[in-house]
Design a protein around this nucleic acid. Structure first.
Lengths: 147, 147
DNA sequence: CTTTTTGCAAAGCGTTTGCATTGAA
DNA sequence: TTCAATGCAAACGCTTTGCAAAAAG
């Protein structure tokens, strides 16, 4: 069962790489696998720590460069963050974000009404829209409690 | 006319500072004035260059620290940006953002329908909403032309 | 007079680059 | 065998911190 899942993942990874003339390396696949286990919006550092557990010799630079490549491939997206380090989002389905202004946490929420938003035609003139998201700024429950 | 505008701006600046026990210094006022001349989403570096034209001795650190203070005061907001340096937004009215994924430019657009979006009650449970914005990712006209 | 703020310098942190070595195709 | 990818180290850019001197209240 687990093995089948892994084989499927590898197949789809090979497919994605093939389309973009990217070589299939064990490091890249380890990063790819690691990403789909995460339900968060990790920084490169975070992905590095996760992948390092299974692949102790991997270097931070490889992780960083691979993440940038994956964005180009469309496997990942950058996430708008007002903080220090760049954050990535492996969830390509329609969803929306909550930004905690205190701790910097980014979490997802779903809302069908938001998904259906129509972009005004004037905006489309002069700007090619690739993605659409509602971002709510505020204070998360952890930070509210911490007072 | 210009002088009146400046006096009004100073009065409102004094008011904002008074409410937060922040001292009124010429540097801070110069930064405050500079911000309201800008229609963009500047980085600290950009604000520094603008303010330095009228206040040549000001240091970058003062600008940087002042911007952070202003965010605490509510004069400014952080802007979600997927890039390198932190960006600020002096426009506190309801508006929405276009992010160019190529050059990192952030521009505003207005849309009454977006302004009126109702936030789902389940989201409000557990998250105190302070701001709401639609963010569109895409390619700006300059980058489209540049091919 | 007291306390905050400024300006400068240094430290810190994340990201990017250059290059020799390794490994995929 | 070729050329891209890796790992390492150094460079870089932006942000933050510490501190003495200057300025605000």
């Amino acid at each position: 069962m687990q093995e089948t899942a892994k084989a499927d993942l590898l197949a789809s990874f090979r497919h994605a790489c093939g389309q973009h003339r990217l070589r299939v390396t064990p490091q890249r696949f380890a990063i790819y696998r690691g990403l789909f286990r995460l339900k968060t919006h990790p920084s490169a550092e975070k992905v590095f720590r996760i992948v390092k557990r299974r692949f102790p010799n991997i270097s931070f630079d490889t992780v960083n460069r691979t993440l940038l490549s994956f964005v180009r491939l469309g496997i990942l997206e950058f996430v708008e963050g007002s903080g220090n380090s760049r954050r990535y989002d492996p969830n390509l389905n329609a969803h929306h974000h909550l930004h905690c202004v205190k701790c910097g946490a980014i979490s997802d929420f779903n809302c069908r009404a938001f998904d259906r938003l129509e972009i005004p035609p004037e905006v489309r003139r002069g700007f090619t829209v690739l993605g659409k998201r509602v971002v709510l700024q505020g204070v998360c429950s952890k930070c509210s409690k911490r007072k």
